[in-house]
């Protein structure tokens, strides 16, 4: 399947939601295509780093000021990209290939099973409470799910994409968890 690509340095794991402001003609076109078909891909655009993007669906939109279209998108899975091509309006397309991630299928089944996961969940809840932007993006929050919690933490931490991409690997959940823990929880 070939999908249009939105070039943006956002790290989004499955079920992650973000708000995007769209005003460039080529991306307005992308939104048109995406809403009629099967979503689009957010990709950082640096092929020397990797060819992994986030396959997203549009879950909400509104018209902002100054002809800016505001869309909320939710990641359905990570995808590998190949066979890049661009149309006459410089909108890129690529063939997608689903990548399995530690998050897949884990959302509601799992409950926190150690103290670390519990602390991370409490801390994330506080972040949501404090930041209405986040609060409003997520209609449903799975703060009881450690996988969901760790995934959201990885997305919002101020760390470069190059570093976050370590957590793409399907077996990187434990690393992601301990990474977030050492940043968020003071052990001293």
């Amino acid at each position: 399947m070939k999908l249009p690509i939105f070039t943006l340095p956002i790290f989004l794991l499955p079920q992650g939601i973000t708000r995007i402001r769209v005003y460039e003609p080529r991306y307005l076109k992308l939104v048109r295509i995406a809403s009629q078909n099967d979503g689009f891909v957010i990709y950082h655009g640096n092929k020397t780093v990797d060819n992994v993007g986030s396959w997203v669906n549009i879950v909400n939109f509104e018209q902002g000021d100054d002809d800016v279209l505001i869309i909320d998108v939710e990641c359905r899975s990570l995808v590998g990209l190949s066979e890049f091509e661009a149309d006459e309006e410089q909108l890129s397309f690529a063939t997608i290939n689903k990548i399995t991630h530690w998050f897949d299928g884990k959302t509601q089944q799992q409950k926190v099973n150690d103290e670390i996961e519990r602390e991370l969940s409490v801390a994330l809840r506080a972040v949501f409470d404090e930041h209405s932007v986040l609060q409003n993006l997520y209609e449903t929050k799975f703060l009881d799910s450690p996988y969901w919690t760790v995934a959201r933490w990885i997305e919002i931490l101020p760390v470069s994409y190059a570093d976050k991409r370590s957590f793409i690997a399907s077996d990187s959940y434990e690393q992601a968890k301990s990474f977030v823990y050492s940043v968020v929880v003071d052990k001293n």
Partner: peptide, 12 residues
């Protein structure tokens, strides 16, 4: 708010 979906270090 959040820049590219991320908190800044200051916010954190």
């Amino acid at each position: 708010g959040f820049y590219f979906n991320e908190m800044s270090q200051e916010q954190l």
